[in-house]
Amino acid sequence: MDFAIFLVQLLNGLQYGLLLFLIASGLTLVFGVMGILNLAHGSMYMVGAYLVWYFFQLTDQFLLSALISAALALGLGVLIEKTLIHRLYKRNHLDQVLLTIGMIFVFNALQSILWGDDPLGVPVPELLSGSIHLTELVEYPVYRLFVAALCLLLAGALYLVINRTRIGMLIRAGESNREMVECLGVNINQLYTLVFGAGVMLAALAGVVAAPMISIVPGMGEHVLITCFVVVVIGGMGSIKGAFVAALLVGVVDTFASVLVPGVSSMIVYILMAVILLIKPEGLFSSQK
């Protein structure tokens, strides 16, 4: 592998990792703050991709479709929290697992009924459709660089919101001691609704920005779900920073393993996770005590 190719592969890995982070961030946020294990998180990613495809067919405007989709996803998240999740806070994790598995079934069925089963695609927006020459043979599409930059931007924004704003303060407080936050007169219900909505929106947003790069197919949610869980667990459940580091790690390791050690590439992320959990049983940056 010469140096130029090495750099391209590194870029591939980072870009994949950043997208993984965007999907996983919502999952870890929801778990960290609310202690909810949302297995339907992958379905939200799928919903985002299908929504943007649908609105793109109607409007022919990618940006507009993306905004509508994100807004709808936020609404969907709030609705789910208010009607279902809300009643399960006092129950154990396993009931939440059951509920969210039921939700996966429902979302998969609705996807099939509403949008059919054919693979779908969204074209890359005109403005970003160019590509940059990296080597004599390899080009890199501008859109993928844009997505990487966008993910970085969102990571920064999340960091700022959590560490510098009042809501962020409440979120951090809620993570470490929710009873105390409640006692201090904060409306924890509203906070939870907001966080869950934001989590769903982040997943859907990942689906939206990924839509032009992937094929939109039934079952795409479950496939990404497991990888996301790996990322979240490696990073430490509930830690945004951990998810960021873990996502990049998984992205890069997976990319290089698939070329250098193809024999074990199907297992590599699981091996990575197992090794990390053996050394640090709580993940890299656990925020749970």
Binding site: D2, I5, S215, D254, T255, S265
Partner: peptide, 18 residues
């Protein structure tokens, strides 16, 4: 041989280019 059903093909395609 790509593990089924993985669809992250970029690294493989870069490998082909090399």
């Amino acid at each position: 041989m790509v593990p089924f059903p993985k669809t992250e093909f970029q690294s493989y395609i870069t490998d082909i280019a090399s």
